[in-house]
Simulated scan of single mutants.
Amino acid sequence: MTQAPRVYGTEHDALATEPQPGHTYRELVGGPLDGQLIEVTGWTDEEITTGVHLIAPHTAYEPGGRSSYAPTFSRPDGPWVWEGDMP
């Protein structure tokens, strides 16, 4: 049985850790958050094309560091790719 990807920002034991109907998500690829989804429901086009710096449990800067994820130019509506860690 395949488990649905976990949504970033939800706790492992929370009831709503899976994608919800009517919401828009991007998959995070690579880095410490690989395989998770980020919800972008209600985000502007500019926010979506810019990407995000997300707090991650395991980064080059210890727990609480941030990982940068952004869409690729070839697939702006596709998954967001890890760009590296930052403090």
Results as ranks from 00 to 15, higher is better:
1 M>R: 12
1 M>L: 03
1 M>N: 04
2 T>W: 11
3 Q>N: 11
4 A>W: 08
5 P>S: 15
5 P>T: 09
7 V>K: 07
10 T>S: 14
10 T>G: 10
10 T>I: 06
11 E>N: 10
12 H>V: 12
12 H>K: 12
12 H>Q: 12
12 H>W: 13
12 H>M: 11
13 D>N: 15
13 D>A: 09
13 D>S: 11
14 A>P: 03
14 A>W: 10
14 A>M: 05
14 A>S: 15
16 A>T: 14
16 A>G: 12
17 T>F: 13
17 T>N: 08
18 E>A: 15
19 P>K: 07
20 Q>D: 08
21 P>Q: 14
21 P>D: 13
22 G>C: 00
25 Y>M: 00
26 R>G: 05
26 R>A: 03
27 E>V: 07
28 L>T: 02
29 V>A: 02
31 G>L: 00
32 P>S: 08
32 P>Q: 04
32 P>M: 02
33 L>W: 00
33 L>Y: 01
33 L>T: 00
35 G>E: 07
36 Q>H: 07
36 Q>I: 03
37 L>K: 08
37 L>P: 08
38 I>M: 06
38 I>S: 01
39 E>M: 05
40 V>D: 08
40 V>A: 07
40 V>H: 02
41 T>K: 02
41 T>P: 06
43 W>D: 10
43 W>Q: 10
44 T>A: 08
45 D>L: 12
46 E>R: 13
46 E>M: 04
47 E>K: 15
47 E>W: 04
47 E>R: 15
47 E>F: 08
47 E>T: 12
48 I>A: 06
48 I>P: 03
48 I>M: 12
49 T>K: 14
51 G>P: 06
51 G>V: 11
52 V>W: 09
52 V>Q: 13
53 H>T: 13
55 I>S: 04
56 A>T: 06
57 P>W: 05
59 T>W: 03
59 T>A: 04
59 T>F: 01
59 T>H: 05
61 Y>D: 07
61 Y>G: 05
62 E>D: 15
62 E>H: 12
62 E>R: 11
63 P>S: 06
66 R>I: 01
67 S>H: 00
67 S>F: 00
67 S>N: 02
68 S>N: 13
68 S>P: 00
69 Y>K: 09
71 P>V: 14
71 P>Y: 07
75 R>C: 08
75 R>K: 14
77 D>Q: 15
78 G>L: 08
78 G>P: 04
78 G>R: 09
79 P>L: 01
80 W>C: 03
80 W>H: 02
81 V>E: 14
82 W>Y: 15
82 W>V: 01
83 E>Q: 15
84 G>N: 00
84 G>Y: 02
87 P>V: 03
87 P>C: 02
